[in-house]
Design a protein around this nucleic acid. Structure first.
Lengths: 106, 106
DNA sequence: CGTGTAAGGAATTCTGACACG
DNA sequence: CGTGTAAGGAATTCTGACACG
């Protein structure tokens, strides 16, 4: 059976449902994509497909917008967090490599 | 944050995606509904909405059909399993009630 | 019984633009 | 900057029916 968590990231949801689940307008949802805050997939016909993760992100965005944060700032924050994650991930991988090979000496 | 597992049961997926994910035709998917094997939601406009659970069920159905099992038999099997589950659930609840109140005596 | 298909219509989504600010 | 809206078109989905078997 497939990993359950993968459902969360699978892009299968139309904008109409995203609208229902987030309370945002289609205009808002598309605008946040234009501002590079979300990245839906597309069908061959051009229909946007979102994941549950996208929906969670959109709700976070909505909160920040309400607080007066600009999309530009939200975007910068996302990029920053991403590079932090990448760094943490790099360190973790390196740690695993060390655990396997690093300490041992001939 | 919402229970992650709830994503699995949320009916948000259009038949086109279900078709992609299961490899079944729209005709087949709709027919299995007619035979009461799956129960998608509907939008106010009448568009069917499926969950990831529905997709899993559809893949099970597809396997059984391939094995030559009739929809009628699959249906009966589902009903049987459901009543077993209900019975187990009843017993479990009763067990919890007993654990709380049953053993103690004044 | 289970599935394909053509038919016509309806619901949904898409883009680009104008508007306000 | 962020969002609403009317406009026209395209992609998607729906139902009921005929067909084969």
């Amino acid at each position: 059976m497939a990993n359950e968590a993968s459902y969360k990231h699978k892009k299968v949801i139309n904008i109409g449902v995203v609208k229902e689940l987030t309370g945002l307008s289609q205009r808002q949802i598309r605008y946040y994509e234009e501002r590079k805050l979300i990245f839906p997939d597309r069908t061959s016909g051009g229909i946007r497909k979102y994941s549950f993760t996208d929906i969670e992100i959109l709700m976070d965005i909505a909160n920040k917008i309400e607080e007066g944060v600009q999309t530009r700032e939200i975007r910068q924050e996302m990029v920053r967090k991403q590079s932090v994650n990448n760094e943490q991930h790099r360190k973790m991988i390196q740690g695993q490599i060390n655990a396997h090979f690093g300490i041992r000496r001939k």
